[in-house]
C-alpha cells in the first residue's frame, strides 16, 4: 500500500498536469499511485481530494483503517469557492498514532514531497497566467510587466518557486526533514499569494487560477503539521 510516486519523471508529470489542468486530475493520480480506493488523511484526519474519490474511498491512508461512513463518523463538505472545482474536503478520517505517528512516517513524508511537486505545478500555472495578465494589462500605455515595482514582486515570487524546486529536485522523502518540507510548502503558499496579488482583482476570481490556488492552500492546511 505504499507504491507512492517516487521518481522524478512521475513527479514532473504530476507537476505538469497540475500546471495545465489544476489539481483534480493530479490529485487523483497521486492517490491512485498509493493504492486503489484510498484517501490520504492529514495529521488531524482531514483530506482534500477529488470529489469522486472522497465519496467512494474505502480506506484511509496511511492508517489503512476503513473509511467509516456511519453518520457523523466522517464529515464530507465543500467550502463554497470549491463547489465547482471537482474537489471535496473530508474530516474525521482515521490517523495512525495521532500526530506523533506522522512525524516518524517516511511514507507520509513522501506524500508531502509529492504534494510539493503538485503544488509547484499549480504555482507554475499561476505564474503563466500572471505573466500573460501583466503583459496585457497597461498603465499609462505601458504594460504592467515593465513596471519596476511589479518586476520586483514578480522576481520575489519566482525566487520562491526556484528555491522550492531546488530543494525537492533529485530528492527522495528520506533525504528531507519534516521541517524542510513544511518550509517548502510555506514558500509555495507565500509565492502564490504574491502572484495572486499582482493580478489585481482578476486574482480574486474563481476562474483559473484562483480556485486552483485556493485548493493548493487547502492541501497545505489539511496535510501539514503545524
Amino acid at each position: 500500500m505504499t507504491a507512492m510516486l517516487s521518481d522524478e519523471v512521475a513527479w514532473q508529470q504530476l507537476h505538469d498536469s497540475a500546471r495545465r489542468n489544476g489539481p483534480e486530475r493530479a490529485l487523483a493520480r497521486a492517490h491512485a499511485d498509493i493504492a486503489p480506493h484510498v484517501i490520504v488523511a492529514g495529521p488531524a484526519g482531514h483530506a482534500v481530494a477529488p470529489a469522486a474519490l472522497a465519496r467512494s474511498a474505502s480506506r484511509a491512508w496511511p492508517s489503512g483503517a476503513p473509511v467509516d461512513r456511519r453518520p457523523g463518523a466522517v464529515t464530507v463538505f465543500t467550502p463554497v469557492p470549491l463547489e465547482r472545482s471537482g474537489l471535496m474536503a473530508v474530516r474525521g478520517l482515521a490517523v495512525p498514532g495521532g500526530r506523533a505517528g506522522y512525524q516518524v512516517n517516511v511514507a507520509y513524508r513522501g506524500w508531502l514531497l509529492t504534494l510539493s511537486w503538485l503544488r509547484l505545478g499549480i504555482s507554475a500555472g499561476l505564474l503563466d497566467t500572471a505573466l500573460s495578465y501583466l503583459a496585457h494589462r497597461t498603465v499609462a500605455g505601458e504594460p504592467l510587466l515593465r513596471k519596476q515595482m511589479i518586476q520586483g514582486e514578480l522576481s520575489d515570487a519566482v525566487t520562491r518557486q526556484l528555491a522550492v524546486r531546488a530543494l525537492v529536485s533529485g530528492r527522495r522523502a528520506a533525504d528531507l526533514s519534516d521541517t524542510a518540507l513544511a518550509d517548502a510548502h510555506r514558500q509555495i503558499t507565500a509565492g502564490d499569494g504574491v502572484l495572486l496579488r499582482l493580478m489585481g482583482a482578476r486574482g480574486l476570481t474563481v476562474e483559473w487560477p484562483g480556485q486552483a490556488a485556493y485548493a493548493s492552500e487547502l492541501l497545505a492546511d489539511a496535510y501539514l503539521s503545524r
Binding site: 492529514g42 495529521p43 488531524a44 484526519g45 482531514h46 482534500v48 463538505f77 467550502p79 469557492p81 474536503a89 474530516r91 500526530r99 499569494g193 495572486l196 496579488r197 486574482g203 480574486l204 485556493y214 492552500e217 487547502l218 492546511d221 489539511a222 496535510y223 501539514l224 503539521s225 503545524r226
Partner: peptide
C-alpha cells in the same frame, strides 16, 4: 491544528476576504 481552515470556515473566510 492541521485542517484549521476546514474546521473553522469563518477563519478560512477571513483569509480569503482579507485579500
Amino acid at each position: 491544528g492541521p485542517g484549521a481552515r476546514l474546521d473553522h470556515p469563518l477563519l478560512d473566510k477571513l483569509v480569503r476576504d482579507a485579500r
